[in-house]
Computed example of a mutant assay.
Amino acid sequence: MEDGLLIQYDHVEICRKELVVLKDVNFKLYSGEFVYFIGRVGTGKSSLLKTMYAEIPVVEGEASVLGFNMKSLRKKDIPQLRRKIGIVFQDFQLLTDRSVKDNLNFVLQATGWKNKAEITERVEQVLVQVGMQNKAYKMPHELSGGEQQRIVIARALLNSPQIILADEPTGNLDPQTGQQIVSLLHSICETGTAVIMTTHNHRLVEEFPGRLLKCENKCLSEVSL
């Protein structure tokens, strides 16, 4: 694989329930790139992201993500792949019965961290990175939507991923809060982490430029605003 290349898709076809969602997808992602997948609802943006963390299988073409062959990926290797990818969901998916700190502790323990002092230190680091260091003991319901999304981004950063996949991360937020979240993702990208974000908000794309690919008519193509 060439230097800095994290994802390579060659002639990939993506299906959901036996229906073709996207066909002949050719795509490369490099370290430190910020990429937007744009397109109307139902054009395959989320499905494409889901193939990258093995939620949906790749059945046609060749696909490599962080050195993993996505066509021959064994079930037992999926956790290893996902540890290298941070995923930011539109609907947060925080555990509602525990504090911010305990949400983050849980992820680290589930991914093999054992040392309590190291866990505490890492949680503090990511909370500082997303500007939420004073919210560690809050419960999710005590946070605003924007604050919850910052915690979700902190959770995605815990294992120092090479790629962050953000699926409509501003979809449930007001415009100003959405801007703050995209600004935060761009600042993370500047540290060398590649970011792929799906959106249909053209204003955000104009304000925070990145590489632009559009899902339309079952195809993925590079476009400019």
Rank of each mutant, 00 (worst) to 15 (best):
M1D: 02
M1R: 10
M1L: 13
E2D: 13
D3N: 11
G4F: 05
I7N: 05
I7V: 07
Q8I: 05
D10Y: 09
H11F: 09
E13W: 14
C15I: 06
C15Q: 15
K17D: 15
K17F: 08
K17M: 09
E18V: 04
L19C: 00
V20L: 12
N26T: 08
N26H: 09
K28Y: 15
S31A: 14
G32S: 14
F37I: 03
I38W: 05
V41L: 12
G42I: 11
T43I: 06
K45I: 02
K45V: 02
S47G: 05
S47N: 07
K50E: 05
K50M: 08
T51N: 05
M52I: 00
A54Y: 10
V58A: 04
G61S: 01
E62Q: 13
E62W: 03
A63T: 04
N69F: 09
N69H: 09
N69L: 08
K71L: 13
S72M: 10
S72T: 15
L73G: 11
L73E: 07
R74G: 15
D77H: 12
I78Y: 00
R83H: 11
F89Q: 08
T96W: 12
R98M: 13
D102P: 07
L104A: 04
L104K: 07
L108Y: 12
A110H: 11
T111D: 09
W113R: 12
W113N: 09
K114D: 14
K116I: 13
I119M: 06
I119W: 07
E121R: 14
Q125T: 14
V126Y: 05
V128Y: 08
Y137A: 14
P140L: 04
E142H: 14
L143Y: 10
L143H: 13
G146Y: 10
G146T: 05
G146R: 12
Q149N: 11
I151Q: 02
A154C: 10
R155F: 00
L158G: 00
S160C: 08
I163L: 04
I164Y: 03
L165P: 00
T170E: 01
N172W: 01
T177W: 02
V182W: 02
L185I: 07
S187P: 03
E190C: 03
T191D: 03
V195A: 04
V195H: 02
M197G: 02
T198L: 02
H200F: 01
N201P: 07
H202F: 06
E206S: 05
P209C: 06
R211D: 14
L212M: 11
E216G: 00
N217W: 07
C219G: 07
L220W: 03
L220F: 02
S224A: 04
